[in-house]
């Protein structure tokens, strides 16, 4: 296997409210000898909200982001479930409609770009599983996480809609019984916690307009992990992370029970297992204290 190289679409959150995710992504990529070419030209994916306002504009902007990955002739790697959803959804729609692709390319032509459909789009989680390999990762583990019960929180936009998601990676995933993140935890030497909410919604996307509903979903998720005796939660999505890490006050109030657990990004968990110093993984940026490192 040659050196793995990807075009990295960081998304907005990794550069703003989850700096620890950016740090740990780069630390882990270095350890795994994966080259990430950052798409500094990329715009916001629209986060499923621009799509509510102006669907066509969101397609054009996402197609532009993909076109930059295509210019590098690289697979685009995302580190946010919602970026993954909106980018992969754009690719799916353009690849399946010549008319839509033509209309989008007319716009991209104005800035000298073209969407061709030549780059794959995959989340870093699946890049590690499909391309790097969990067996190889396991061999590189220097600090097995064997003393921890770790609750996987998958995040909706990496597993649903299943039909779309299963186009984007080789290892099949069933949204009702997902295994990728559990497999990653096991590869890092940890014990996985099975709980009802692991493939459910954290409530992030309705936090402003439906705060109570959103907080109940967050509370239920953390409560489920706590009842499963989890020491901490791990997630591949920075938006789920934000919700579970920073909103424990509202969540506890909404479900009438104090809930709180450290929440790690998938990259931080891998980094710990690979022996990255905790300061390179940004643990001090968590609102809910990561008290075990």
């Amino acid at each position: 296997m040659g050196k793995l190289k990807y075009a990295l679409f960081t998304g907005c959150t990794a550069k703003q409210s989850t700096p620890e995710q950016m740090m740990s992504t780069m630390a882990v990529a270095e350890k795994l000898d994966i080259e990430l070419v950052e798409l500094t030209e990329a715009s916001c994916c629209g986060a499923s909200h621009l799509q509510d306002y102006d669907d066509f504009l969101s397609l054009v902007l996402n197609a532009r982001n993909i076109a930059y990955a295509e210019k590098h002739e690289l697979t685009m790697v995302t580190i946010c479930n919602t970026c993954q959803l909106n980018t992969a959804m754009t690719k799916h729609r353009l690849d399946n409609s010549a008319d839509l692709k033509k209309r989008v390319n007319e716009k991209l032509g104005e800035i000298g770009l073209e969407y061709k459909g030549t780059s794959k789009i995959t989340h870093f989680l699946y890049a590690i599983i499909d391309d790097f390999g969990l067996d190889k990762l396991k061999e590189m583990v220097v600090t097995p996480l064997s003393q921890f019960n770790i609750a996987p929180f998958y995040g909706c936009h990496n597993i649903r809609p299943s039909e779309l998601q299963n186009e984007t990676h080789d290892t099949p995933e069933n949204s009702y019984n997902p295994t990728s993140l559990d497999d990653l935890i096991i590869a890092c030497g940890g014990m996985t916690v099975d709980y009802e909410q692991k493939n459910k919604c954290c409530g992030f996307h309705a936090e402003l307009q439906a705060p109570k509903v959103s907080a109940i979903l967050t509370g239920n998720a953390i409560a489920g992990a706590m009842d499963g005796n989890a020491d901490w939660i791990v997630t591949p999505c920075p938006l789920c992370h934000l919700k579970l890490d920073t909103q424990t006050g509202h969540a506890s109030e909404a479900i009438g029970r104090e809930v709180s657990l450290p929440v790690l990004h998938m990259q931080q968990m891998i980094g710990l297992a690979l022996g990255c110093p905790p300061e390179t993984l940004g643990m001090k940026h968590h609102v809910t204290k990561v008290d075990f490192v």
């Binding site: 916001c44 621009l50 509510d52 102006d54 402003l208």
Partner: peptide
Amino acid sequence: IATRHAVGFEKSIRKNGVL
């Protein structure tokens, strides 16, 4: 809140590219 939230993405992208 919901409609401004959706429109706010366009405003932000227009200004910064990112959010």
